[in-house]
Amino acid sequence: MSLLSVRDLTVKFAMRDETVTALNGISFDVAKGERLGIVGESGAGKSITGFALMKLISRPGYVDRGEILLDGEDVVKMSDQRLRELRGDKMSMIFQDPMVTLNPVLTIGQQMVETLLAHRKLSREEARQIAIVKLREVYINSPEERLDQYPHELSGGMRQRIIIAIALLLDPELIIADEPTTALDVTIQADIMELLLELCQSNKVGLILITHDLGVVSQMTERTLVMYAGRIIEAGRTREIINDPQHPYTQGLINALPQQTLPGHKLRQIPGNMPSLTNIPPGCPFNPRCEYATDLCRTRIPEIAQYGEVQVACHEVQRLQAEGERQEQNA
């Protein structure tokens, strides 16, 4: 059985003037010790997915349908009492906004110690020692001094590492990491990634890594989901998706990387922007930006389906694959 099994998850927001669908029937699994990447442009619904898994969608947002099975228990239907037990302990989330985790009026030490005491039978001093160990693990130096500081006294990257340390405090089985290293420079990013990798491999921790950095996804994850306008549009083994993306959107994402352009030149962009939730076009949500769009694309939503090793939601995928092969033969 999977550690996590998400089926047909749909999240909506009832706004003053209309109700929008932020997640539209997404399904995926995470096995024990598995590392799954979620990528997609800003506004695709990556963070909302994380919030939903933690049952943190609050009014005016709501889970419209679907289930989230964590070791067989449905998070969607879970009682608050049970959620309090599981959050942090069985699953924890590293939030994109560190201040979701951090309380500005408490020192780092107070927050870490309180979290430990709420879940474990420990003395204050024992809790403090655990906190120090966890801070060292995320490469915070002088942890004793840092414990007595307030969040605003720390640099952006330190705050980010501290919320990672807090997420790891209770040794959870599933970690949802939402852009965990965006504020970190490459050297520390590499170290933090190694730490997460080590946790997954030796402690069988499941990891959902939400990031816009395809380099990180490529190094860290075994499988990847590509999201667009609240849907999964491509899913499969990470290596395959990076080396041979099938969906025109995924192809565009990879081509837009600065590494793919000569310095000083304009970066190659996918034309247009991700639609806002009130403005999703009929048919394939990507069609206004897609160079391969046909009439069918403008009217019918492509279902996600298996093509060889990967799942893709695109009407034209077979034609594109055939064309790709022809080009390869001609080359």
Binding site: S42, Q96, P258, L267
Partner: peptide
Amino acid sequence: ALDVSIQA
């Protein structure tokens, strides 16, 4: 905090 295409 931005994804690659928007970064571009």
